[in-house]
């Protein structure tokens, strides 16, 4: 039994600035961090590891510097970490990311579960987890905060808008994790030094996945046309109304906001 947990190294949107003239991100000097939801994914995988004595492998695609983010997963307790890194891999195409991750997962060998965070805080695509499931042709268990394993099956709680479904699936399966389940552990200083001194982050290039740059290009299905800043001045809309009307408007406004995800 093996679990693969896919994690992303991200820049914190709070820290990132945008160059107003070139419309590019200013990330120099910022540290890549482990995507917050992916910490929950790692935690979920580790809980399963402790209960079911399986091994957990962390996998990421990203720039060389993402290695440090994988170290964090090692310090949290995963057994092995792999980074797929190549200059020609672009960040903007989640289809490609999911495709490469599924390739890498296949190369890792037998697995029972692939665990991902539901979304990353930078692009908020919510796309990679489901698409890995599709590429590996395994069932997707989406927005999960609770996992139970047994009898070669997995049962999870999926949460959608205040309602939860318990879903059962054969293994292998892919799971996307949301907050709410287990709080991610803090890596201990002991494990931090172990992760840096005694463990390795294995690096794979395109070749290791058996891919050429041409194939990579062929799997890049989207293109960025342009980037722009839409500056919304934070201004308060003030509403002076009778309580009756105000409460109606508030309810409909709230309902609108609640539809956003």
């Amino acid at each position: 039994m093996g679990i693969v947990v896919c994690v992303k190294a991200v820049y914190d949107p709070e820290e990132v600035r945008v160059h107003k003239r070139t419309m590019t991100l200013l990330i120099e000097g910022l540290h890549l961090k482990l995507n917050p939801l992916d910490k929950y994914a790692v935690e979920a995988a580790l809980k399963l590891k402790e209960k079911w004595k399986t091994s957990v492998t962390a996998l990421s695609i990203g720039p060389e510097e993402a290695e440090d983010v994988l170290r964090r997963t090692l310090a949290m307790g995963v057994n092995k970490a792999y980074l797929v890194t190549d200059e020609s891999i672009k960040d903007h195409d989640p289809f490609l990311t999911a495709y490469l991750l599924s390739k890498a997962i296949k190369k890792l060998g037998d697995f029972d579960l692939v665990v991902c965070g539901e979304k990353s805080i930078d692009w908020e695509n919510r796309q990679v987890g489901p698409q890995i499931a599709a590429f590996l042709q395994i069932p997707l268990l989406h927005r999960v905060d609770n996992i139970e394993l047994g009898n070669g099956k997995v049962r999870v709680r999926e949460v959608f808008d205040g309602e939860a479904l318990w879903v059962e699936s054969p293994l292998p399966a892919a799971i996307t994790i949301i907050k709410g389940g287990n709080k991610p552990r803090f890596p201990s200083p002991w494990n931090i030094s172990k992760a840096y001194r005694k463990m390795r982050v294995e690096k794979w290039g395109l070749k290791d996945l058996g891919l050429s740059r041409e194939e990579l290009k062929a799997k890049t299905v989207t293109k960025v046309r342009r980037q722009f800043i839409f500056e919304r001045k934070r201004e308060t809309k003030l509403m002076v109304e009778e309580a009756e009307a105000a409460s109606d408007k508030l309810i409909s406004h709230l309902n609108k906001l609640l539809e956003e995800i």
């Binding site: 440090d68 170290r71 803090f186 890596p187 931090i192 030094s193 840096y196 001194r197």
Partner: peptide, 16 residues
Amino acid sequence: LSKELEFFREVVREFA
């Protein structure tokens, strides 16, 4: 600082 210590700082900061 080494990367190890930068990372340690990140973790301690989160904890704190």
